[in-house]
């Protein structure tokens, strides 16, 4: 574990917590893409499937973190699609999730480290996570604005994988550890946030709201 991965995971936890708090406190999921949250839930379940296969005692933080990610993302989907369904902006959350899931699944079968079920599920989860934020960014471009709290959520969510890139550089240099698939997907994922990062740093930090087109 290094400082970059630690802060990456903390940033990820913060993003999940910010979104849950926003929906719970405002009792509304306006401006939140339910599809993105569904895709994240799929990512966690397919990536941490080993938790369900052979139950390992929860002695280490990694297992606990995995359970937190899975339960928090499923709970977020429950809030969006059931509890606060009336506030779900289905009309603007219109990006076809199939256009993200099918290519990720296909690519996972073509480009992977080893052709076995668990490894392909992990690879699918990595590819899907890289593009899972697209419905959320698409929704913001359709509505033309993002609530400040949602911007903080996106900043934390985007920072998590950006910090992981620093973690991979660190591990390459000090542990000569390389996970090419995770690195390439992580770079693609972070690039998708660049436009948002620019808006966040030039606007939200100054207390303004993000309104598109910028």
């Amino acid at each position: 574990m290094n400082i970059f991965r630690l802060f990456g995971d903390l940033s990820h936890l913060a993003a999940i917590a910010i979104l849950l708090l926003k929906i719970w406190k405002t009792r509304s999921c306006a401006g939140v893409s339910g599809k993105t949250q569904l895709l994240f839930a799929v990512c966690f379940i397919t990536r941490y499937i080993d938790l369900f296969l052979h139950f390992v005692s929860l002695y280490n933080t990694e297992k606990v973190m995995k359970l937190i990610y899975i339960s928090a993302s499923v709970f977020t989907c429950y809030l969006i699609f059931f509890k606060f369904k009336a506030t779900y902006d289905g009309n603007h959350d219109s990006m076809r999730a199939e256009f993200l899931i099918v290519p990720a699944a296909g690519l996972a079968c073509l480009i992977n480290t080893k052709f076995d079920a668990i490894e392909i599920l992990w690879t699918f989860s990595i590819y899907l996570e890289a593009v899972a934020i697209l419905p959320q960014l698409f929704l913001i471009s359709k509505t033309g604005e993002a609530e400040t709290i949602t911007s903080h959520y996106l900043f934390a969510q985007g920072s998590y994988r950006a910090l992981y890139i620093l973690n991979w550089i660190y591990r390459y240099h000090y542990e000569s550890h390389v996970d090419t698939i995770a690195i390439v997907a992580g770079v693609v994922q972070t690039i998708l946030y660049c436009d948002f990062f620019y808006l966040y740093i030039t606007k939200v930090v100054k207390g303004q709201k993000i309104v598109l087109p910028a």
Binding site: R5, M65, Y69, W122, D179, A182
Partner: peptide, 10 residues
């Protein structure tokens, strides 16, 4: 072995 493939990151 599977340890080689074990992905040790979240």
């Amino acid at each position: 072995g599977s340890s080689l493939l074990h992905h040790d990151e979240l």
